[in-house]
Design a binder for these strands. Structure first.
Length: 816
RNA sequence: GCGGAUGUGGUGAAAUUGGUAUACACGCCAGACUUAGGAUCUGGUGCCGCAAGGCGUGGAGGUUCAAGUCCUCUCAUCCGCACCA
């Protein structure tokens, strides 16, 4: 047979499609495996990152199918989102048409790569059936108080004309279009993810071992829990009067209560409500107001460049010392962390130091090193001994924190508090191509939920996408409806949901049997059987956003009574990026490799083999054209040499002791490859080493000509390679083994028994020579043989020690 | 600054428990077969050295009979977070 990737691959792809080879069964008594790749956005064409992602999950899924497990390996499309709208603007097309055309094309690509996805369970998140249940969940969450609407200061992308979640702001810029974001005051819907902050943090422990450490740390940092002291600072009488007696005090948060006696000024965020009041009531000079406005208008990146501030000409009273402390506005104080106000201790905080130096504010030291002098030319931020701190003098600063917090609590002037960096998740977007938020604004009833029987609230299709404003808001009729409560004319909410909402529960939808898709999102029985996801595979770029949101939804669904577990993904593998010429493949750099072109030239198996062979999955993968060629040659050789096989329906029985040395060696290599394959598919996922083992076995088979050894070798090797290069292996298996070998393989220990063993001989740990011994040789004889062989290096020097490591080496330690 | 990772031939990378460093592949070199080869097959290929031998896993120490692997320090690169009080 001549290897022809095109005909072989087409043949088996059609065979699998006709036989529904990859559909899971509804027999819940069977052992299950849920193998999931992160689903793609239907951008139009797969890129190599996708191919890598699905080659990994497909290999794992096919392995478990061989073992007879009930395998769920689904795929779908994360099909809402801005690129569809942007493409629509650019090509004057309809986002829906654009999206579903792309989906059709990409389905064809999946097929041509031979991925063993369940076809029955494919869906797109923009399908109305998906929207229907999602809107139902949104209503549930609203009823539970987990979704709320409020006016707030939001990240606004002026280019995309929409609000972004904190998680979607990267370096102060929009994560999609890289435009610097600005803050805007708007009505928004929020998920109360902060209510789950503690649990999201604590449950990271449950994921240890199953998730990469890096991802766990990133989530931990993102949640950003910190403990400290919160207390009120009261204005003095003059200041109170100045504020028209509207404000008595403001509160501050600190993680360094030990420095409290060193407070020498306080600072408010420019957006602080006291500041706003002062501006609105003309309590500040024009220059100061101009300065504040400038600060507020500055983007967060620019704000970080230099500290600046302005005095409010107000004073507060230190709660412990009674001293007067000036109040400033500082650009480095963030309104959305803590209370938007800080106590400043320039002596022991670098930021406070910089600010105090710039504006010539007092600096009061209260901590000194345990030994040595305090260097007063910079902030001392380490642990030390307290002084100038009344009754706490002499204490270790770290240890005093507890005492000082207790002191505040006893005097009832402050309390222990926990703060999080994590913010509630703003989910409304002023865009067309997303799931409509199922609410209605009624003049009489206010904000009203849509009735569940009216779901889905679908998008209108006759829409004009111009890139300006919200197309739903501009639509002539869509938003006009009647109030679900009182029946009066009302206005439909025109905001749509963040697309991360869809990807927060799609893995649950895959568990639902398609025949029930119309009537329910999923059933508990199905969920309990399939979840959690045994292996989740995707890019590290989702370490925070998607993975945190999906964890949040899982916990919410649990509390709504829909599911019975806490965490969705038992094991997570974050694949490395695909690089070309040392840089990430991207259209803008022009260094992409088109999967379709590779398939056309070499076939899907070559692409899959190269991708799994060139690097371990968690590492970056450097694309290399000649190495791709090498993978192609291996497959061709593998195919050509199958002519050495004798047709058989079962694995040949071989009398091992009657074989020649080369034949024995070949069998050993084959079974070594099998051992390694099991380990790789179950645990390690370092497919590169498994493939190397198969290549070694092939090289060993080629040194002998026993047709039984060849047949046995191929029986095993084509079984363990099937998850990687399925088309080639099915073809070989069908031709010679009636497809019987695509099943679990038994390891024969007898092939590992050696007639003789080579031991390395080292002198003082340095390898010098080797000896050949029989497996049952005594230690004495081994040492004697080693000494004899290594006489040249030993000479007449004194032997201090002799070490024999069984089956490995002999080490002789000599003196001098 | 905080956190996470990585560093091994010309290149991608192996070495699962401290036990023969560089498996497997790419590239390169040589040979065979060929009208030809960018096909196929065979062999060679860490560095220095004519050789004997020496040196070799970013660098410096340490533990050990034995270190890529463990410990301490250090350098470099990459990634994430970042005026988070």
């Amino acid at each position: 047979m001549e290897y022809n990737s095109q005909t072989i691959e087409k043949k088996w792809q059609n065979y699998w499609a006709e036989n529904d080879s990859f559909e899971p069964t509804e027999d819940f008594t069977k052992d299950k495996k849920y193998i999931l790749s992160m689903f793609p956005f239907p951008s139009g064409r797969l890129h190599m990152g996708h191919v890598r992602n699905y080659s990994i999950s497909d290999a794992i899924a096919r392995y478990h199918r061989q073992l007879g497990k009930n395998v769920l390996h689904p795929i779908g499309f994360d099909s809402f989102g801005m690129p569809a709208e942007n493409a629509a603007i650019k090509n004057n097309a309809n986002p829906k048409t654009w999206t579903y055309d792309n989906i059709e094309y990409m389905k064809g690509e999946f097929k041509s790569l031979g991925f063993s996805f369940s076809k029955d369970r494919e869906f797109a998140t923009s399908d109305e059936l998906y929207t229907k249940f999602e809107q139902g969940f949104i209503i549930d969450m609203f009823e539970k108080g987990l979704l709320y609407r409020k006016k707030g200061l939001l990240n606004w992308c002026p280019h995309d004309q929409t609000v972004l979640a904190n998680e979607q702001v990267v370096d102060g810029c929009c994560w999609r279009c890289d435009t610097p974001i600005v803050k805007k005051d708007m009505n928004q819907y929020y998920f109360k993810i902060t209510e789950y902050g503690d649990e999201l943090l604590a449950d990271l422990k449950k994921l240890e071992g199953g998730w990469p450490k890096q991802v766990l740390t990133m989530q931990e940092n993102w949640i950003g829990k910190s403990n400290g002291l919160e207390f009120d600072l009261y204005f003095d009488e003059d200041s109170k009067a100045k504020l028209d007696s509207k404000f008595e005090s403001f509160d501050v948060f600190t993680t360094r209560p030990d420095t409290v006696y060193g407070v020498s000024y306080t600072a408010l965020a420019p957006e602080h409500k006291i500041v706003t009041y002062m501006i609105e009531n003309n309590l500040l000079s024009d220059e100061v107001i101009t300065e504040i406005k400038k600060m507020k208008a500055t983007s967060s990146i620019d704000r970080q460049k230099e500290k600046s501030g302005v005095s409010l000409d107000l004073n507060v009273i230190h709660p412990l010392t009674g001293k007067r402390i000036p109040v400033w506005i500082a650009n480095f104080v963030l309104m959305d962390y803590g209370s938007g106000a800080v106590m400043a201790v320039p002596a022991h905080d670098d930021r406070d130091w910089d600010f105090a130096k710039k504006y010539d504010l007092p600096i009061n030291s209260v901590i000194k090193p345990f030994d040595g002098e305090l260097d007063e030319s910079k902030a001392f931020t380490e642990v030390g001994e307290l002084f100038n701190s009344e009754e706490f003098n002499g204490m270790n600063s770290k240890k005093s924190q507890y005492n000082i917090i207790k002191y505040f609590e006893e005097k009832n002037i402050g309390k222990k508090t926990t703060n999080y960096k994590l913010k509630d998740w703003g989910v409304s977007r002023q865009r067309y191509w997303g799931a409509p938020i199922p609410f209605v604004h009624c003049d009489d009833c206010g904000l009203v939920m849509e009735k569940k029987e009216n779901l889905p609230i679908a998008l209108p299709e006759d829409v004009e996408i111009t890139g300006e404003g919200n197309p739903l808001d501009n639509h002539p009729t869509w938003k006009h409806c009647s109030c679900p409560n009182c029946g009066k004319d009302a206005i439909r909410e025109t905001d749509t949901m963040d697309t991360f909402v869809e990807s927060s529960w799609y893995f649950l939808r895959f568990c639902a049997s398609p025949e029930n898709w119309e009537k329910e999102a999923f059933s508990k029985e199905q969920i309990n059987y399939w979840m959690g996801v045994d292996q989740y595979i995707g890019g590290i770029e989702h370490a925070i956003l998607h993975l945190l949101y999906a964890r949040f939804f899982t916990k919410v669904f649990r509390d709504l009574g829909y599911i019975d577990f806490d965490e969705p993904f038992d094991n997570l593998l974050t694949q490395g990026m695909v690089l070309k010429d040392g840089a990430k493949m991207s259209k803008s750099k022009g260094n992409t490799v088109d999967p379709d072109a590779i398939i056309a030239k070499y076939g899907a198996d070559t692409a899959r083999l190269f991708i799994l062979f060139a690097a371990p999955p968690t590492q970056e993968l450097e694309w290399n054209d000649s190495a791709v060629e090498g993978s192609y040659k291996f497959i061709k050789r593998f195919f050509d040499r199958s002519s050495n096989i004798v047709k058989t329906d079962s694995i040949p029985t071989i009398e091992h002791s009657s074989l020649t040395k080369d034949e024995k060696f070949a069998r050993k290599k084959v079974y070594e490859a099998l051992k390694r394959a099991n380990d790789v598919y179950e645990e390690r996922f370092t497919f590169n080493t498994m493939i190397a083992g198969v290549m070694e076995a092939m090289n060993a088979l080629n040194t002998q000509s026993n047709s039984d050894v060849w047949s046995e070798g191929y029986w095993i090797l084509s079984s363990i390679m099937e998850p990687v290069i399925p088309h080639t292996c099915w073809e070989i298996s069908d031709e010679y083994f009636s497809l019987n070998n695509l099943a679990p393989q038994k390891i024969l220990e007898e092939v590992f028994v050696e007639d003789s063993i080579t031991l390395g001989v080292s002198i003082n740990g340095k390898r010098r020579t080797e000896i050949e011994i029989s497996p049952d040789e005594t230690k004495e004889n081994i040492i004697a043989m080693a000494k004899d062989k290594a006489q040249k290096w030993i000479g007449d020097k004194e032997i201090v020690k002799e070490i024999v490591v069984p089956k490995k080496l002999v080490n002789i330690v000599i003196k001098g």
